[in-house]
Design a binder for these strands. Structure first.
Lengths: 131, 131
DNA sequence: TATAATTCCTATCGCAAAGATAGGAATTTA
DNA sequence: TAAATTCCTATCTTTGCGATAGGAATTATA
């Protein structure tokens, strides 16, 4: 699985914000997108930490995008929400572990696949998800 | 993660068989590839059931490929070993569940990604892994 | 200044899948 | 009959995903 529920929720939350053209509370967003509120909260915190979204605390607080929606590629959003976008552990978390790496004939294939997927996901932005 | 350890083991086991040009016992293969014997056993049974490999039981038994190695694409091998090669649940197991499907602007993106990955993996065969 | 609405923080739970292991039955050769 | 092998079924452990819980901190406003 390349894209988990968490990543798809993140994209939908950002798309929702983009559609509203302003700021919205998490309660509104989660309700509109039918995403469990508490789960949405944890995802939104990732987006804030990544700088994709700005937050305002307190009453009348909420969230808004820091950029125009065409300035977010799917690749960069998913890099924040997915544990790894790597095609396999060989090019992901456990890359350093592998004693085969130096001579492995398969490794270049996974690297090329990573690049293919990354190029694909870099070719779409939030605007493309605004229906 | 597109390709799990199980899938990579499967590819290595088939590549090992291809290199030997004949038949080999699982003990040999697992040892040569440094794969846990019992785990290799369960993977090999998938390959046999898929018709990729023929088995001979009893003493001097073993396994051999049913085709020349250039006749196995990575895509078809991995389809047997991976739970799903789909980019997301939206195009995988839970596809039918989604009430959004009809109008979802993201779904076509996942479909296109699936196709991209499939085409990529169909472009390599076991021969390409024989180093 | 109190209250309501919000974001922020930390911890935990349930479940499914991946990775691996165990024991032994069935088959075949020598 | 003994050894080497594949075949079959069941189980175990760890991990990560999806989700939940409780409450602290912050802010507008009545």
């Amino acid at each position: 699985m390349i894209v988990s529920t968490k990543g798809r929720y993140a994209l939908r939350m950002m798309t929702d914000l983009a559609t509203r053209q302003g700021s919205a509370s998490l309660r509104e967003i989660a309700q509109a997108q039918d995403i469990p509120f508490k789960y949405a909260e944890s995802i939104m915190s990732l987006l804030v930490r990544a700088g994709f979204v700005e937050s305002a605390r307190g009453k009348n607080g909420g969230y808004r995008l820091t950029r125009p929606p065409e300035a977010y590629t799917l690749a960069e959003v998913l890099r924040e929400t997915e544990t790894s976008l790597a095609a396999s552990d060989c090019t992901g978390r456990k890359e350093a572990d592998c004693p085969r790496a130096a001579t492995c004939p398969t490794l270049p294939v996974w690297r090329a696949l990573d690049q293919t997927v990354n190029e694909f996901l870099s070719g779409y932005t939030i605007v493309d998800l605004m229906g």
